[in-house]
Simulated assay, not measured.
Amino acid sequence: MSGLTVRTAAKINLLLGVGAPRADGFHTLVTVYQAVSLYDDLTVALPSTGAGRLTVATHVASYIDASHLPRPGHNIVDRAAAALSDHHGRPVTADVRVDKSIPIAGGLAGGSADGAGALLALDRLHGLGISDDDLILLAAGLGSDVPFALVGGSALGEGHGEIVTPLDDRGTWWWVVVPSEEGLSTPAVYRHYDELRPNAPEVPAPPDGVVGALAGGDVHRLAAALHNDLEQAACDLRPDLARLIVEGVAAGALRGLVSGSGPTCVFLCESGDHARTVAGALTAADDRRVVLVAHGPVAGAHVVADG
């Protein structure tokens, strides 16, 4: 095989329940993921020169600040290749091109998507034939969102989010996605959450409302059920996010939400036309913003070009 391209999708959290900190410092999570139509494409080919080498070149969309990319050799693609190499006991080399349209450091799991895409692409390129179970295990070793990036669709996430169970989803859901130029530290959000919720339960409640809304394909029921335990902490640290949510709802969105630990905000709309209207209003209010329209659920990491 001379080369192939794998497409991977961004994720948003329709619900994020966060338990109290455990003895190991981590929090037990219950989340509902949805993969949405913002994509990174990873194209891999056998190395053009030399042996035993992996190169990674990243090309970003016009709205992404390339200065936020990890430095060479520290990309999750490098870690994915190393994980495959260790698993199979052989070098895993390639020339990798990442065409990135998922905003960076925004709570949309763009890095996790690239890790999932790299695992799949490099396995297929070299004909390694890894089993699905082992692929998921390697993905979990790269990060808690990476297994979902392989699975896609809509899914329940448990543990740290890495235990993924696909959900029945009868709807097509339209979102306005507004990333932020200014980052937000995930550890800082969790620390502030712990301060705000000293009596948080050890294990969050099950996400029955969101699960039922997805199964019923009911957009208004879903809007009412969306929830993020980290939202108050994120908005305390970044009051502009709270103002943006109010603005998006005033523009007509059914509901606004911080996705994950932020700082990206997402807005649920009734249809594609409705989402484009809300996006237009948010852009008109501030044309410096990046405002994207996406739909979900979409597939997880998959091959789109082969040979």
Rank of each mutant, 00 (worst) to 15 (best):
P103D: 11
G296E: 13
N199M: 02
A233Y: 01
P297D: 04
R71W: 00
T186E: 13
S271L: 13
L16T: 04
D86W: 02
L184S: 11
A149W: 00
R191E: 15
A109N: 08
V18W: 05
A121K: 12
Q34Y: 03
L257M: 14
L125V: 01
V211K: 09
D132S: 15
D40M: 10
A223C: 06
A253G: 10
G161W: 09
G307S: 14
A82G: 06
L42I: 14
G3C: 10
A284I: 05
L14V: 09
G107R: 12
L125S: 01
L119G: 06
G127Y: 10
T264Q: 08
S154A: 15
V146R: 04
L54E: 00
L125T: 00
P91S: 04
H68M: 06
L237I: 00
D306I: 00
L254P: 06
V92E: 02
L69T: 02
G217Q: 08
T28P: 07
A188T: 09
I64Y: 06
A223W: 01
A253E: 05
V176Y: 12
D208Q: 07
L282E: 05
G217D: 04
W175P: 12
P239H: 10
L214C: 08
A233M: 06
S144V: 00
P201T: 09
G25T: 03
T283D: 07
L167Q: 11
V211C: 12
R255M: 05
A225N: 04
A284G: 14
S154L: 06
V211S: 08
G159I: 02
R53P: 00
F267L: 10
R191F: 02
V60W: 09
G89Y: 07
A10D: 11
V266A: 12
L138T: 00
G262A: 11
C265L: 13
E181N: 08
H192I: 00
G216P: 07
V303M: 05
L29I: 13
A299F: 01
G106W: 01
S185T: 09
